[in-house]
């Protein structure tokens, strides 16, 4: 089983096909959920439509249970991104401004293009490509200055707290269930 998985993960052409297939499924989920629509995303940021929060929190609750169980069984490894105040907080603030001005994010903008949103294609995708290009030019200067300021440990919250992952995962899933129940109870 584990050897077969290793071979599969190293098979480059198969991986490209898997990426495409998972993308098709991801795009279908985003479209069914309605989060490929500008109105739904901007509604979330204006706190009038909670669809985005419902989709994301459900995905996190379902995802975290499965990934942690697979990890315990030795079938999955975590990939934790590094972060810092200078990178995550400053970059995140710029991202959030772009999120509100564009009204899509990098995944949902691709779905929006598929559903026929021409502002997503002509404005959104073009803008993100230009922005990514600008970042590649700025990168050496940012790397030498702001990106490394206030580094976080490249770790999970359970690792930082020195506890077993289930001590954090189980309460988080219960908390998510409670938040989603409250949203429905309030009619949001």
């Amino acid at each position: 089983m584990k050897d077969a998985l290793k071979r599969l993960r190293r098979n480059a052409p198969v991986q490209l096909s898997l990426g495409l297939a998972m993308g098709v499924a991801f795009g279908a989920c985003l479209q069914v959920a309605g989060v490929t629509r500008y109105d739904v995303i901007i509604g979330q940021l204006l706190l009038t439509d909670f669809t985005v929060v419902k989709v994301m929190l459900t995905a996190v609750a379902v995802g975290t249970l499965g990934v942690h169980l697979m990890r315990a069984a030795g079938l999955a490894d975590l990939h934790i991104k590094p972060g810092s105040v200078g990178a995550t907080v400053v970059g995140g603030a710029i991202f959030g401004a772009g999120f509100a001005v564009l009204g899509y994010c990098p995944g949902t903008v691709a779905g929006a293009v598929g559903s026929g949103a021409l502002d997503a294609l002509v404005g959104g995708v073009t803008g993100i490509l230009i922005g990514a290009g600008i970042f590649s030019v700025l990168y050496p200067r940012l790397e030498a200055s702001v990106l490394g300021l206030g580094k976080f440990p490249t770790a999970t919250i359970p690792e930082v707290l020195h506890v077993n992952p289930r001590v954090v995962v189980v309460p988080l899933v219960l908390l998510i269930a409670a938040v989603l129940y409250a949203l429905e109870y309030l009619g949001l």
Partner: peptide
């Protein structure tokens, strides 16, 4: 918005 998002996503 896209330009801000492209810069911000790679920055973060």
């Amino acid at each position: 918005g896209g330009v801000l998002m492209g810069i911000g996503a790679r920055w973060a």
